[in-house]
Structures are given as C-alpha cells and as structure tokens.
Design a protein around this nucleic acid. Sequence first.
DNA 1: GACTTAATTAAGTGATCAGCTAAATACAAA
DNA 2: TTTGTATTTAGCTGATCACTTAATTAAGTC
Lengths: 102, 102
Amino acid sequence: MDRFTALADPTRRRIVEMLGQRAMAAGEITAQFGMSAPAISQHLKVLKEAGLVSVEVSGQRRIYRLDPNGLDAFDAWVRQVRGFWNAGLDRLERELTKPDDE
Amino acid sequence: MDRFTALADPTRRRIVEMLGQRAMAAGEITAQFGMSAPAISQHLKVLKEAGLVSVEVSGQRRIYRLDPNGLDAFDAWVRQVRGFWNAGLDRLERELTKPDDE
DNA sequence: GACTTAATTAAGTGATCAGCTAAATACAAA
DNA sequence: TTTGTATTTAGCTGATCACTTAATTAAGTC
C-alpha cells in the first residue's frame, strides 16, 4: 500500500495529524478513537509501511512518531505536478482566475 | 469521495500529472491508458467532484484541466501537519537525526 | 433523417479494505 | 510463575472500489 493510499483513510489522517503534534504510544492513540485496539494497530502498521510514521519500542509500549520524510515525498509530488502546471500554457487563465497567488 | 481518496488511485494520479502539463480531452486521456473509456470517465468524475480538475464542454468534447485550488488544499494539509511537527517537542530529536533541514 | 464520434450513465463482478472478536506475543509486577 | 497490561496477529464479514460490457446522450457529418 503506497503513501497516497495510506492517507486516503480519515482515521489514518487523524493519526498523522496527532503525531504531527507529539509522539504517542499506540494505546494513547487508540484512546482518541471509538474503535478497537486492533483496528488502530492495523492503521499504524499501514502508516509505518508507508514510511509516514516510525516506531520505537519502549518496554511494553510502542511509541509512534511522525516520519517527516514520508510527508516530504508527498509534498514533492504536489509541487512537481503544480510545477508542470505553472510552466504550462494554462498559466494565463490561472492568473485571470486567481491573481493573488504566491 | 474526498480529495485524499481521489488521489489514492494511481490511474487518477497519472491523470492529474498529465493535466499538470496541459489540458486534455477525455478521449485523449483515455488513449494514454490501456483501459476502457468508461473507466477513465469515472476517474475523471471522481477527480472533478474532488475539486482537482475542471471540465469545459467544447462541442462533443470535454476538455479537462487541472484545478490548482484542489492541489493547494491538499498541499496545505501536508504543510500544516509538518508545521505542527516542526513546532513540537520532537524538534530536538529531529535536529539530531536530520541536521541539514531547510 | 441516418450514421459516426465523443463521452457518459447503468448494471454487474472480483478484489481490496476497514472494522470486528478471539487468540497470541511480550513485557512488567506481584 | 501467575496475573495483568500493551500491542499485535489471525480470521472473518460487510462495504467500497476499480474495472468490465451494454445502453444512452449529445454533437458533428453526410
């Protein structure tokens, strides 16, 4: 499952948002949702495999934290597409419809 | 179907990439894929409803173009999450693991 | 009007996914 | 080593999704 698909799910997106603020243990994350622990665990697995979060084992807890590199790659794609778009012929129309850019 | 889910599909992502370079008719897009016209049409519908592309009817053709606002909103989410992360307590560790940032 | 071209809508199907409960693993505490 | 706590793995199920072919809408051409 790729990075984009990983972020398609709203629960996983909320997890990423939460980890953007601070690192959290799996159980701590679970407590924020009305959902079973296995469900969250699976979501965390997906995010981990997508390179969006990393885990640190601490005793019987797993501390999850945001992996900013994962988000970087995501951002890079957007920039690239928009870069092409900026360079394209559509630029004229863009300046007409949204002049207060950048 | 939200913006994130719309971009989860690789075919739709490729369409967005293509439209980033120039506006294209539906049939023109279909020709780039080994896939039926209805399949592409459905993908375009999803992208349109997600605010990622716009359509202009020109005779019997539908010209699709990238809607940069959609990508902006998308990008904004990524930046916001990373922004929180940059401001968070994890910053110390971040500077240790990736000192050459920004 | 009849035919072709461009594209969409309709209806169906196999695959994937997000959630569940139950069971397993692993560490901590007693 | 028994019990409890934190988390994951296994197995199941209903829902959603990405395709398909067939039918439909709409516009250009003869």
